[in-house]
Design a protein around this nucleic acid. Structure first.
Lengths: 148, 148
DNA sequence: CGAATATCCTAGCTCGTCAATCGGGTTTTC
DNA sequence: GAAAACCCGATTGACGAGCTAGGATATTCG
């Protein structure tokens, strides 16, 4: 299951990608992306540390994408927020761990079945960018936020 | 993430599939599949209710597959134990639910990206059966259980 | 300057789920 | 009638998910 938090992160990034020209406050993003404001603040903090968004403090501050929307993949966002994409630790590219109770990894039928799953998942999530998502689902134009 | 319980269920079924001729006690399966015995009892109970295994009570009782191992897919087992395979409720075949906070399902970019993921996952897990898994990973021959 | 508006940071809270374990009850066989 | 097995409900402890609270800090504007 994709976590709620990951959905929020993706939606927030899509909102930011729809207004690359200016910084949006957490409150504005929260409204447009339908995310609890305080929770979103936390999430944007993580995205900032990871280098996906840049922030400007103080009055008229806010967040904007730190990189082109074309370069931010769903896979990257989900890994950041939810951790590895693989359904088994022994199939993770970015955080491989042996399954604790696995007798023989090479001959594990479960691992084998999920190897196909994870390849397809990664393929789909690497191929989808925030830019593509923004273009597919044009978010409402932030009518409530004055242009100052 | 595939739950521990689902792994246990799959391993247990593979063990049972390797001895279709006789009933195996929960304790014997537990040892061969490396699953805590009492926990396995619970799992086997669920598999029985679902019609995947049959049980025989009393002395010399035990469990055996209720259907040919070729007809039991990973997808069926995982759905039974972990619930829907889809990473979003709005993409589940067997338990569709609208995402609570989804504004417009048809135009949801997240849903769109995961549609590909779920199709591939289902395809892989429907294609893998307990029989195939048993043949791929020949479990140890239950040396510790006397043949009576 | 100082008030307003923002981000930043840490802590904590409430649920629900996961992964078991416990303690018995019931059935069947020898 | 005792042993070996399944059957069943309750409980437990750890953990993470999904928030909320409360302030500290930075920036801008009048």
């Amino acid at each position: 299951m994709l976590s709620q938090k990951a959905k929020y992160a993706l939606r927030a990034l899509i909102v930011l990608a729809s207004r690359p020209d200016r910084a949006l406050s957490a409150a504005a993003v929260a409204e447009a992306a339908r995310v609890p404001t305080k929770f979103l603040e936390q999430i944007l903090g993580e995205l900032r540390v990871a280098g996906l968004v840049a922030s400007q403090r103080g009055r008229h501050g806010g967040y904007r994408l730190a990189r082109p929307a074309e370069s931010i993949t769903f896979a990257a966002v989900i890994r950041l927020v939810d951790g590895p994409i693989a359904p088994l630790p022994c199939l993770s590219q970015t955080a491989y761990r042996r399954c604790a109770d696995c007798a023989d990894e090479a001959n594990c039928a479960i691992r084998r079945a999920f190897a196909d799953v994870v390849v397809a998942s990664r393929q789909a999530l690497d191929a989808t960018t925030i830019a593509a998502a923004r273009d597919f689902d044009p978010a409402p134009p932030l009518a409530t936020v004055p242009d100052r």
